[in-house]
Design a protein around this nucleic acid. Structure first.
Lengths: 334, 334
DNA sequence: ATGAAAGCGCTAACAT
DNA sequence: ATGTTAGCGCTTTCAT
């Protein structure tokens, strides 16, 4: 059986309150008593009971990272690896423990109870879809920080950390324009995710500023297969396409073989810029020019914002991290 | 503020005990009272407090999946995606919530306290290294099921679920023998992980049974780079190598270019069998013959074993799942 | 079938 | 600096 505070107190010849103080690092305990208590704790192998502590203190020291995606999406998307790592690394330096809650679960009643029932002190929510309303009723009862601007305006009051999607898309598109391309299409991401919407608008802004046609849009869902399909539609609509901005690298990877089969050379006939700089971008042939997201930094910033929020500090309503253009063969410098 | 049991009891005009019974699905409550209580719960938006419930009932309804690896290892290894999914899917059907604890964390004092302090009802531990002793002191105080036989004999008393590593390796090697290959080497996995040790012994068994030389062993650490290095050493030792069993597909992928550079054709000059059937096995050129692991099933079985253990049921000390040979171009059928 | 009452193990005023 | 005393919100005998 696990030792209790009571037992430790008895062994050390002090009150439970004193043991509690020692366990919680209070400075108000005399060195010699602290010493006695510490010894008793070691001797008995005492570990505080979480439930009791949480019940009395009204905190859990746990934060949840909620990913409303399927398990496979999470693991297949290279972005998440770095992102989760950023979160975990940051939290490792704090008093908090990370609890990763994955999708189907996250929408379930069980998880809702876990969150609402005081199971965690706060939550991080990433990749929020417009169709997903499962966090609406959490917002008033739990500190939440969003990773990626939620498309849902009701959630606007929560702090958000995001990468500069419109800015990155604009820079990528301007790069294509700078290469002299004039018929520039885009394979956009899902319209129900802000990453999709924002990258599309960045592409559009750049084209309009240059006085070019911004009608060559086809949508995908961030998967390679959808990228291939969108590429086919785009080529059909405008065979003379000479530039392409793709909302993520995976879809760009899907577009490559379609272009090859159509006899279009990259970058001679059509220059391509992706988004993410995932693990495959550099290994594609030709290698992909793309916008790098600071994924790990995003995770760390997100975690940091939540921790500050939980500490009662003021946090920025919105933090936007910059992207960086990584120039490779698919759209080389002039 | 969140509603409490007390408030619900008052609203429904019953005792707290009765509300508790309704919440916990006791059949001993009359329909009309149940009805009243349910209404009060809905009206007040009551969600039980986890800490209080856990303190009183001495259970948490949470199980931990402990992965003693770095975050990137977990996410980069295709095996984990399917595995975690298997665990999550199984638990979704139960009363338990999954808490994924990743490595650096898992060895930390914080996590130890989380586990020992009653934070979870039980734990699943995968990918156990011999160097890792952090779970030794958990074993007596927490129900644990291991995924993959722990190399540490002290942990032998815990239930284990594993794939048939020796059997798979034997079958793969026998396939090479059946192809008429006679100088069959192996790139083995790390000697401090049972998956490495067991696959090596399976290869050895097959060769001995056939009366062939079982000395052509070089070790890697399951990464492509280590596979490449091992391949070079093997070719140096025995240039006439005509068969190769590799302990995982990633190392096989690393070996491919080395063989190509050495002017050895696959499978004409050297036939290759891998292990895992990961996402890349089929896309290698030539595609890789390999042993498929039932990763998701492994996760589900592991979770199921723990759940049964927690329910006080008897569980098998050891459950071994079969692998299946997937024949592709690198070692085609005769 | 329902209620009363005693904790579960800890923290946090409040005293001293 | 240390002890005393209430709870935290729930489950669980034990009565009735």
């Amino acid at each position: 059986m696990a030792a209790t505070l009571e037992l430790v107190a008895r062994a050390a010849g002090v009150s439970r309150a004193t043991v509690s103080r020692v366990v919680n690092g209070s400075t108000q305990v005399s060195p010699r008593v602290t010493q006695r208590v510490v010894e008793a704790i070691e001797r008995l192998g005492y570990v505080p009971n979480r439930a009791a502590r949480s019940l009395a203190s009204r905190r859990t020291d746990v934060v949840a990272l909620i990913v409303p995606e399927t398990t496979s999406t999470v693991f297949d998307d290279p972005f998440f690896a770095a992102f989760v790592q950023g979160v975990a690394r940051f939290l490792a330096e704090t008093e908090y423990t990370l609890n990763l809650l994955i999708a189907p679960e996250a929408s379930s009643e069980k998880t809702r109870r876990y969150l609402l029932g005081g199971g965690v002190d706060g939550a991080l929510v990433v990749s929020h879809h417009s169709g997903d309303h499962s966090y609406l009723d959490l917002q008033r009862s739990l500190p939440i920080v969003f990773g990626g601007r939620p498309i849902n305006p009701e959630l606007a009051e929560h702090p958000v950390v995001d990468v500069d999607n419109p800015g990155g898309a604009r820079i990528g598109t301007e790069h294509l324009i700078g290469l002299g391309r004039r018929r520039i299409g885009t394979i956009a991401g899902r319209a129900d995710m802000t990453a999709g919407v924002d990258r599309l608008s960045g592409w559009r802004d750049a084209l309009r500023a240059a006085g070019l046609d911004d009608g060559l849009v086809e949508f995908g869902d961030f998967t390679p297969a959808s990228g291939a399909a969108a590429m086919r539609r785009l080529l059909e609509r405008e065979p003379r396409l000479d530039g392409l901005f793709v909302a993520n690298d995976l879809m760009a990877a899907g577009a490559y073989p379609v272009l090859r089969d159509a006899g279009r050379r990259i970058p001679e006939d059509i220059a391509i810029v992706g988004f993410d700089d995932d693990a495959f971008a550099a290994t594609l042939s030709p290698s992909l020019t793309t916008l790098r997201q600071p994924s790990a930094e995003l995770g760390a910033t997100l975690a940091g914002t939540l921790v500050r929020l939980l500490a009662g500090e003021d946090v920025l309503a919105s933090t936007i991290l910059p992207t960086r253009l990584v120039v490779r063969e698919s759209a080389p410098n002039p």
